[in-house]
């Protein structure tokens, strides 16, 4: 009984302290919350609201309920754009990892000139996508650029080849450009993951007689799950939202074969002036993106028994 009476006054005090702590905590995160509300939640709400309207860029708008969403179902060019975006996402993500992983393994350990290599590989990542696209747009130009004229002047080809005129070379040129631009960034993320793996685990495995491949498969990969998840989500989300490079270098060409989902949204909103429809397309893309990210997080979740 005494124990209880002695104990009862305590909880209110701790609760009071705790709640004051919570208020102070809230105060600390308030600027961040305000940013999220002003620059994410309100625009998101407005987009959802606009998607229920026939909302031209200029002039009066009118409420049409789910009309825009019904129209999306019949919009074959949007679904084609989405299919191309998916194809591009798969290819470019694989390409980025194929390049970035070896680079990360290469620059992870200290060796002569490591810092130089790291800087060199990372450098393209600090260039904006638009500027990088303009640069490559020139490099790829058939008359005044670098690749085709150089190959011609060196006698490798007997007629200048227009890399951007047909789908395959144009598509792979974009892939090359994106890998050049993004691989360095993915490399840094993967490198950080590699460095967080305790050295003694590797050493213990070596003593147990595990070869380099077995160590990579049984230690490196499992312990990098969360790093891989981060890199993968960044890469997939970035690729699904691809726009700049296709707009600046290819203008969606050759013959509209490289229209991505975001490009289509841009066209509907700012070329055809259908802002409401563009907003509805954006909502659809948002749902797809969130769903994909959840699936990836689930696939790469923390396995049982591992920290």
């Amino acid at each position: 009984m005494t124990v209880i009476t002695a104990a009862t006054p305590a909880p209110p005090r701790t609760r009071k302290v705790a709640s004051r702590h919570q208020w102070i905590g809230l105060l600390y995160v308030a600027p961040a919350v305000a940013l999220v509300v002003v620059f994410f939640l309100i625009p998101l709400g407005m987009t959802a609201w606009m998607s229920l309207h026939n909302w031209p860029l200029m002039g009066e708008h009118s409420f049409i309920g789910l009309g825009n969403y019904v129209a999306i179902l019949r919009d074959t060019r949007f679904w084609n754009a989405l299919r191309f975006t998916a194809y591009y996402t798969v290819i470019v993500t694989i390409a980025i990892f194929v390049v970035a992983f070896p680079l990360a393994l290469f620059v992870e350990r200290p060796r002569p000139l490591t810092n130089l290599y790291r800087t060199m590989f990372f450098m393209p990542a600090v260039v904006g996508f638009a500027s990088a696209s303009l640069l490559w747009s020139w490099l790829l130009n058939v008359d005044s650029g670098l690749f085709s004229p150089a190959a011609y002047d060196l006698g490798l080809i007997d007629r200048k080849f227009n890399l951007l005129a047909t789908f395959q070379p144009a598509f792979w040129s974009i892939i090359a450009m994106v890998v050049w631009k993004v691989a360095g960034f993915t490399m840094i993320i993967l490198m950080a993951g590699l460095q967080s793996i305790p050295q003694d685990l590797q050493e213990a495995a070596v003593i147990d007689g595990a070869g380099p491949f077995a160590r990579f498969r049984a230690i490196t990969l499992p312990l990098m799950r969360r790093t891989l998840a981060l890199a993968l989500i960044l890469s997939v989300a970035g690729s699904i939202l691809a726009f700049d490079q296709f707009y600046i270098i290819l203008r969606g060409g050759p013959r509209n074969q490289t229209l991505t989902a975001v490009y289509w949204i841009f066209n509907q909103s700012f070329v055809s002036f259908k802002l409401g429809y563009g907003a509805a397309l954006s909502m659809v893309l948002l749902v797809i993106l969130v769903a994909l990210s959840l699936v990836q997080l689930w696939l790469l979740r923390k396995p049982e028994g591992l920290d």
Binding site: A165, R251, G252, G253, P254, R255, N256, L259, Y263, N267, V271, S272
Partner: peptide, 22 residues
């Protein structure tokens, strides 16, 4: 006019590229 002719992804632009080079 913009949708028909000037848009880089419109039917006119696509057609001229196809008929001149395709």
């Amino acid at each position: 006019f913009n949708d028909l002719i000037n848009s880089a992804n419109g039917p006119w632009t696509q057609m001229i590229n196809e008929v001149f080079f395709g």
